[in-house]
């Protein structure tokens, strides 16, 4: 029996057993009628909803809106985060001054800022972008700080021997040595920014975006539309992650197989 597990096609087939069973169960629920039929929409209607949304261009619009929000927030929050992390790691004064404030603010659950930001900025794109940027900001600060403070002294000694200026020291030693951890921070930032994008879109429920589409579909009790949006969200999230992992691999190609 366990021989089966060693054959790739068999493994794929085994992996499909549970999802297929769930789909059958779901389909059965949808035909049971009554109150449950509202939630358990027939699978056929999910496909129809997909075709409809994709055909009208609605799905593409929403996907692009979500994607650009997530990427813009990642860039804004990531750049600010790496900058602050690096400055905190190189300046004791800034570390002492800003560090405690950063750690205090970070304790508030990210989306807990929404009511406050909603009051200040309304529930438009500005408010969403601020939350998404904040989501990307936290992990990049932390990891850049760790990365810079943990650069090995033996490398800094080499810089001293060859008379590096402080700019050279930063550009040729500190930054590349910290890069693996900085990129770990950006990887986390990507995941958080993605969650924050979907979350703010659902919660603020205005404008376009996959989350807004889910929120609207919930109000209209359209489970088929929700499922389509979730499917696209998962695929996009996976793709973003994969693309970034490749970029990271390229930037860290000097680490070799050990990394």
């Amino acid at each position: 029996m366990s021989m089966l597990l060693k054959r790739p096609p068999a493994r794929i087939a085994i992996g499909l057993v549970v999802p297929v069973l769930i789909l059958f169960w779901w389909q059965a629920q949808s035909q049971a009628g009554g109150a449950r039929a509202l939630a358990f929409v027939p699978l056929g209607s999910v496909a129809t909803a997909f075709a409809e949304l994709a055909g009208s261009g609605q799905l593409l619009d929403d996907a692009l809106a979500t994607l650009s929000r997530a990427v813009t927030g990642l860039l804004l929050g990531g750049i600010a985060g790496v900058t602050l992390g690096v400055v905190m790691a190189t300046s004791r004064l800034v570390d002492r001054l800003v560090g405690p404030l950063y750690h205090a603010i970070r304790q508030v659950p990210l989306l807990g800022w929404l009511p406050l930001i909603g009051l200040w900025l309304g529930n438009g794109d500005g408010a969403k972008l601020l939350i998404v940027s904040l989501a990307a900001f936290y992990p990049t600060v932390l990891n850049s700080y760790e990365g810079i403070t943990h650069v090995e002294k033996r490398y800094l000694d080499v810089g001293r021997i060859y008379g590096f200026t402080s700019v050279q020291r930063f550009r040729l030693i500190l930054l590349p040595a910290a890069l693996p951890l900085i990129l770990t921070g950006v990887t986390q930032a990507l995941a958080f920014a993605w969650i924050a994008t979907i979350g703010t879109e659902i919660l603020l429920g205005s404008g376009s975006g996959l989350g807004a589409a889910m929120g609207l579909a919930q109000a209209q009790q359209r489970m088929d539309v929700i499922l389509v949006a979730i499917l696209v969200t998962a695929l996009l999230g996976f793709t973003l992650n994969d693309l970034f992992a490749r970029l990271r691999g390229h930037l860290l190609r000097w680490q070799g197989a050990s990394a």
Binding site: Q218, A234, F238
Partner: peptide, 30 residues
């Protein structure tokens, strides 16, 4: 268990791609 892994890990990995908050509308309807 190798068997449980073979049966459930593909589904687990796929569902993990969904941001938790995206389950909110589904759960509200259910």
């Amino acid at each position: 268990s190798k068997w449980i892994e073979a049966l459930f890990s593909p589904l687990f990995l796929a569902v993990r791609q969904v941001p938790v908050l995206a389950f909110v509308p589904v759960l509200v309807l259910l």
